[in-house]
Simulated assay, not measured.
Amino acid sequence: MSNADLLPSLLFKINQNQLALEAAIMELTLWVEQRGSAEVAGNVRGALDTISKNEEFINLTLAILKVQD
């Protein structure tokens, strides 16, 4: 298997890790928010929003790369 063949699978796994981290961070954000740190929670939500905005492009690109295999 060539390096080019591995790239779509690698990117897919990295994306899965990113989504898992996003979910874990959101859980921590809710926990922080419940303890009165709304400003910190807001900052984290802003960062998570960036991940969400990029998710559609990442998924589309991964789908195209997988089809090209």
Rank of each mutant, 00 (worst) to 15 (best):
V40K: 08
A63H: 03
I25M: 09
M1R: 13
A24I: 11
L65R: 03
A24L: 14
E55H: 13
E22D: 02
P8A: 12
D69Q: 12
A47F: 12
E22T: 03
N43S: 10
G36E: 08
Q18M: 10
I51W: 08
G42F: 15
L19Y: 02
T61C: 01
E33V: 13
A38V: 14
V44H: 06
K13S: 08
E22A: 09
E56D: 00
V67D: 09
L62W: 01
E22H: 04
E56G: 03
L65F: 05
I58G: 00
E39K: 12
R45H: 13
L6W: 02
N43W: 02
L7T: 01
G36D: 08
L30Q: 14
L6S: 04
A20H: 04
S37I: 10
W31G: 04
E27G: 04
G36S: 08
A23D: 00
D5S: 03
L48Y: 11
N43T: 07
L19Q: 08
N43C: 01
I51Q: 07
V40C: 05
K66W: 05
K53P: 04
K66I: 10
V40L: 15
L10W: 04
K66H: 13
L65I: 01
L7A: 01
L60P: 00
Q16R: 09
A4N: 05
S37W: 15
R45T: 10
L65V: 05
E27P: 05
L7Y: 05
K66A: 14
T50R: 14
D69Y: 03
E33W: 13
L65H: 08
L60W: 10
A24E: 15
E55R: 15
N54W: 08
K13T: 08
N54M: 08
S2K: 12
K13R: 09
E55V: 05
E56P: 06
W31F: 15
A23V: 05
G42W: 15
A4C: 03
I14K: 03
I14H: 04
D49K: 13
E27C: 05
S2V: 04
K13L: 05
N43Y: 07
I25P: 07
E56Y: 02
G46K: 14
L11A: 00
A41F: 12
A63F: 03
E33M: 14
V32L: 14
A24M: 13
K66C: 00
Q68W: 01
I14Q: 05
V67C: 06
L65P: 02
K53Y: 10
K53D: 11
A20F: 00
F12A: 08
L60R: 15
L19M: 00
V44F: 07
E56I: 06
L10Y: 07
F12N: 00
N54F: 07
L10V: 07
E56C: 02
Q18G: 02
E56S: 06
W31H: 14
L65N: 01
L10H: 03
S52R: 15
F12R: 09
L7N: 02
F12C: 03
L30A: 09
P8E: 10
N59E: 11
D49L: 11
M1P: 11
T29E: 07
S9R: 10
N59L: 09
A4G: 06
P8Q: 12
F12L: 00
A4Q: 09
T61R: 03
V44S: 03
A23N: 07
L10G: 00
